[in-house]
Design a binder for these strands. Structure first.
Lengths: 134, 134
DNA sequence: TAAGTGCACTAATCGACTTAGTACACTTAA
DNA sequence: TTAAGTGTACTAAGTCGATTAGTGCACTTA
């Protein structure tokens, strides 16, 4: 299911988390699917269970999966995940706008920036999943 | 001019850069003022010249000062600095908006966010210097 | 030419991050 | 109750990058 690239300079847990996130995003792992246990996946990849644990923690923080102690890890429902991600993006954006305001940039200028971005043609890396526009 | 706090866990060069930035922002060091040389300031603070060098590099990157090899470091003109800072903020903001668009967030929602931030009453830490609104 | 300036390179130190080892608490089913 | 399977907390070793220091070079000015 997952292959580790030892030439990759990033930490193992980050690689594992990223690969799993991709599988979730592209739909291979559907909502509420049970992920392999930390021990079994660790055995399969020949690395320490704690490393898998950390990858799972990362995924949980990012909202991709949820954990039930004693039972296992499960893929988060698509709608929940999408809402969570959008909220994160919006929070970051709010910080940026506040910063702009404090820097003395007018709201007109910021609004113009927003419009120009949305007016630009779409290119590269489309959003993970985007059937519905809520 | 500057006092180092060894209880502070941050690196020395960061402390030095921050203190100098504050002096520049609050107007103690006016535009085109010559800063102390890396050697003299290092001697004054009893730290290595390279540490001061790094602090100055940081300040130059952030647009607070400019460097002339063989001559010294000088405080950037207020207008230049302000433009540079605003551009940095706007670039960061653009990235955020692109991310929002890719996440499937509508432009209306982003615009509403911008307006709500600018509608909120001003509070805490006002912008460094803000007599003119260009 | 000499003094003063910033800059580039290397080396030592130190701390944080990463990973592994181990033991514990929880859930489930026999 | 018991046993197997699950996630979690704690500590320790190893590794790697950031920070700081040391040294020498190139540039500007008088």
């Amino acid at each position: 299911m997952i292959v580790i690239d030892y030439r990759d300079k990033r930490p193992l847990y980050e690689q594992v988390a990223e690969k799993l996130a991709q599988l979730i995003i592209c739909g291979v792992l559907e909502s509420n699917t049970k992920l392999p246990s930390v021990r079994s996946l660790a055995l399969e990849l020949s690395i320490n269970p704690n490393t898998i644990q950390r990858a799972y923690n990362q995924l949980e923080q990012d909202g991709y999966i949820y954990t039930v102690v004693g039972r296992g890890n499960y893929v988060t429902d698509v709608h929940e995940w999408k809402n969570g991600y959008q909220n994160t993006v919006l929070q970051e954006l709010e910080e940026g706008v506040k910063k702009a305001r404090e820097a003395g940039i007018t709201s007109e200028r910021v609004t113009a920036l927003v419009q120009s971005v949305y007016a630009a043609p779409v290119q590269e890396s489309p959003p993970p999943r985007d059937e519905e526009s809520n």
